[in-house]
Design a protein around this nucleic acid. Structure first.
Lengths: 225, 225
DNA sequence: CCGGACACGTGAGGC
DNA sequence: TGCCTCACGTGTCCG
C-alpha cells in the first residue's frame, strides 16, 4: 500500500494545484495492474500488462508535459481572465494579436520616420513626405497647402509650418527655408522629415530663437528627374 | 445509416486534418446510444442514456473548442516548427517572449528618446543621457569617456563622437559643441539626444559640412542644482 | 515493433 | 440540481 495516487476516487483538485502536486514522479503503475483483466484482454500475462502500463505512463507524461507548457504559456501572457485551458489559449491569441498590432504600428511609424534612405526615389515606399518636395519645384503658390500636410509622422503634436520658402539658387542648388513653432520634438521631427526624404543635402542649419524653429537647407537637385 | 463518424474504428487522421473534417456539426449522437449498455450502467433506461450521451457530446464539444483555439493559436504564431500540440504551445511561448523583448527594447528606446520632457530633472527617468551632462560640469578631462557612451539609442549605427567641447560662457550659459561623422540619421539622433535631456536650450545650431556633422548648443544652467 | 501523438468515453469535483 | 472542466485509461494510427 504505497502512497500511490488514488485513481478513480477523489483527489481531483483544480488543475493548476494538481500540477504542483504532480511534480513528484508519478509511479502509479500497479493501478492498472490491479485493473488488468478488467476488459479481458487476449493474453492476461505480465508482458501485456507491462506494455499497457508503459503506454499509460507515457500518456501520463505527455499530458503532464502539455499541461506544463500551458502553464508556462499562461505565465507569459498578462491579463488572464480565467484559468481555463481554452481561456488561456484564447487570451494568448488575443495578446499575440495585440502585440502584432502594436508592432505593426510601430514598424509603420519607424518606416515612415526613419526610412526613405534605402532606395533613392523610385517612388514606391514613402507615404506622405515624398509627395511634397517634388511639388515644391513646380509651383510656389501652394505654400498655404503645406500648412495642412501632416509634417512629422508621430501623431503627437504635428508640426505646423509658419513659413516655407523655396528658392532656386542656380547650379542645381535649391534653398528651402521654413519656420515653425517650437514645441516638443519639433527639431527632431524636422530632422526626421528631411532625412527621410533621401535628398542630397549640401548643408543644413537648424536653430531655435524666441520660441520659433528656423531651418535652412541647401539641396542639390538634378533638373532631369 | 447516416454518414456518422465511425467511432472506435479507423478514422484516426492527423488531428489537423481531422479538425477540417470536424467542421461540420458533429451530430454523432446515436453512436454512444449504440454503445450504451456497453459498460452496463445501473439503470439501462433511456433517461440515463440521455444524460450520459449529453455528457459525451458536451465533452466532445469541449475538446473540439479547445482544438479550435489551439489551431487559432497556431495561426497567429509564425515559424511553427511542428504541428504537435505541445510544440504549438512552446512556439507560442517563445514567440511571446520574443515579442516581449522587442517591445521592451522599443519601449526603452522611445522612453529614452522621446521622454525627458515630462518632469524637469528630478533624476528618475533617463538611463544614459542624463548622467552625462551633469558630469560635464565637474571635469573636462573625461572627454575620452564619452566616446564609448552609446549616443543614440537605436542599435543601428550608433553615433560616434569625434570631438566634444564644453565651455562655461558665464551668466548661467553653457556652450556644448560636438562633431561626428555624418551617416544615416545622425542629425536625427543628435536632436533626439539633446531634446531628450530636457535642457533649457537657449539656441541650437546643427550643420553638416564635408561628411561631418557639427552641433553647437547654448544651454541655460542653474549652478545650484 | 515500439514510442509518440491523438481522440474518445468516463468518473469525479466544483460552481 | 445540472453544467462545466479536468484527469485518466484505452484503442488506434503513424514514422
Amino acid at each position: 500500500m504505497e502512497p500511490i495516487e488514488n485513481i478513480g476516487e477523489e483527489y481531483q483538485n483544480y488543475w493548476e494545484t494538481k500540477m504542483f502536486l504532480q511534480n513528484e514522479e508519478l509511479d502509479s503503475w500497479a493501478i492498472d495492474e490491479a485493473f488488468s483483466g478488467y476488459y479481458d484482454s487476449s493474453s492476461p500475462d505480465g508482458a501485456a500488462s507491462s506494455a499497457a502500463s508503459k503506454n499509460i505512463v507515457s500518456e501520463r507524461n505527455r499530458r503532464k508535459k502539455l499541461n506544463e507548457r500551458l502553464f508556462a504559456l499562461r505565465a507569459v501572457v498578462p491579463n488572464i481572465s480565467k484559468m481555463d485551458k481554452a481561456s488561456i489559449i484564447k487570451d494568448a491569441i488575443g495578446y499575440i494579436q495585440e502585440l502584432h498590432d502594436q508592432e505593426k504600428k510601430i514598424q509603420a511609424e519607424l518606416l515612415e520616420l526613419e526610412s526613405g534612405k534605402s532606395k533613392k526615389n523610385h517612388g514606391g515606399f514613402g507615404v506622405h513626405y515624398h509627395q511634397e518636395l517634388p511639388v515644391l519645384l513646380r509651383s510656389k503658390k501652394k505654400k498655404i497647402d503645406y500648412q495642412f500636410c501632416d509634417f512629422g509622422g508621430s501623431k503627437i503634436s504635428p508640426i505646423e509650418l509658419l513659413e516655407l520658402r523655396v528658392a532656386y539658387m542656380g547650379e542645381n542648388t535649391l534653398l528651402v527655408s521654413l519656420t515653425c513653432n517650437k514645441r516638443t520634438d519639433t527639431m527632431v521631427k524636422l530632422c526626421e522629415v528631411f532625412e527621410s526624404l533621401g535628398l542630397k543635402i549640401i548643408t543644413a542649419n537648424i536653430t531655435t530663437i524666441s520660441g520659433r524653429v528656423l531651418k535652412t537647407v541647401f539641396i542639390e537637385v538634378s533638373l532631369f528627374n
